[in-house]
Design a protein around this nucleic acid. Sequence first.
DNA 1: CTATACTTTCAGTAGATACTGAAACAGGAG
DNA 2: CTCCTGTTTCAGTATCTACTGAAAGTATAG
Lengths: 201, 201
Amino acid sequence: MAPATTLPPAAIEKETREAKITPQQQLRTSQDLFIRRWGEMGATWGINRTMAEIHALLYITAQPLCTDDVMERLHISRGNASMSLRSLCDWGIIRRLHKRGERREFFESLSDVWEIFSIIATERKRREMDPVLETIKQCQTMLDASSIGKTAAAQESVKLTRQRLGDMEEFMAVTNKVFQQFVGNAKSGLSRVVRVLLKAL
Amino acid sequence: MAPATTLPPAAIEKETREAKITPQQQLRTSQDLFIRRWGEMGATWGINRTMAEIHALLYITAQPLCTDDVMERLHISRGNASMSLRSLCDWGIIRRLHKRGERREFFESLSDVWEIFSIIATERKRREMDPVLETIKQCQTMLDASSIGKTAAAQESVKLTRQRLGDMEEFMAVTNKVFQQFVGNAKSGLSRVVRVLLKAL
DNA sequence: CTATACTTTCAGTAGATACTGAAACAGGAG
DNA sequence: CTCCTGTTTCAGTATCTACTGAAAGTATAG
C-alpha cells in the first residue's frame, strides 16, 4: 500500500526528494497524486470520487488495465470496481478491451481530452439543463393571461416573476447554443468555437 | 403547506387546470415548481439542495424576504435557513437588506443572471480547476529527466504518462482562458465572448 | 439596567450515498 | 457434463452530509 494515497501533496514531494526511490516508484507516486486530485475534483462536481479515480488511473497510465489491477491500485472491492467500471463504460469515457488469448477483460480510457470533456458535458446538459428549461416554460405557461386571468396577470408580483423567468430562459437558451457549438465539433483537438475565440479575443 | 412541493410536475399542472384556484395560488404553484427544479439541479452540481432552493425563491419572487418567510415557504428550520442564507451571502449571489423601521433583516437575490452565473463559475474555477492545474505541474516536475533520471525518463510508461499530463494541461489552460473571457466581462447582459460567438457561428 | 426581537451556533440525529464481501451467475476448457 | 476463471449483483453496513431545535448570543428600545 502506497502511503502516497494518504499523505498531503507537500509530504509526497518531500518524500520523493529525500528518500531513495526507484524511478518506478516515482512514476507511481506522480500518478497517484494526479489520481487523488482528480478524484477530489470529481467529488465536488457530482461524480463520485471512486469513479473519478478509476478514470484518472486509466487515463494517466495510458495502458489497458484489468479489474484486479484497478482493485489493487485503488484499494477498492471487486464489487465496487465492477460497478464503477460498468458505469464509466455506460458514460462512454472508457472502453472494454479484449486481449488475444486473455480471458480477462481490460479497460482503457479514451485518449482525447476534448472528447472526454465533450461526452461528459453533453450528458450533463441533457440530464440537468434541459429539464430546467422545460420547467421554466411550464412555469411561464401557468402565468399567461389566458391561464391566470387578465387582472391577475397585471399584478406586480406576477409581472416580476414573469420577468425573472424570461431572463433565466434567455440566459439558458444562449448558454445552450454556445455549448452546442463548443462540444458539437470537439472531436479530436480544439473545437471550432475555441479557435474562433482564441483568434477573436 | 402547499402540496405542490411534493407532487410531480404533471400532477401540478393537472391540478392547476382542474381545480378552482386563485391567481395568488397559481403564482405560488408556478414559483414552487421552479424552486424545486432549481434545487434538484443544484444537488447534482455539488451545491446543496436547500441552498439552491433558497436562492431560487429569492430570485423568482424578485422581492426581499426575511428569514421567517424563507423558513415558512420552504419548510426548513431556523438554523438551516440562517446558515444557508449566510452562505449565499458569502458567495455573493444574494444580499442582506435593511428596511427602514424594521429590525428584521431581509434578503434579495442579485437580479442579473449573467452576474450570478459569473460569480458561481469563478468561485468554482478557483476552488476546483486551479488546484488540479497546479497538481498537474507538480506531477510533471516529478517525471522530469532531472528528477527521475535520464534512463527512466526514456521508459515507455513514463513517456506515456507525461504525454497524458501534457494533453490535460493544455486542455485546462485553454479552457481557463476561454472561461476567463467568458466571465471576465459578464457584468450586466451578454458578455463579449458570447456576442463574438453568436456573430461568428 | 431589563425586556424584547431577532440571529447564530452546534450537538445530536436523520437520511442519503458509497462500499464491501459473499453468493449467484456466465461461459470456455477439458 | 464438471471444473475453472472471471464477472455481476445485492443485502447489509459503514461513512458522510444535511437538518433540526434548543440554547446562547447580539442589538435595540424603553
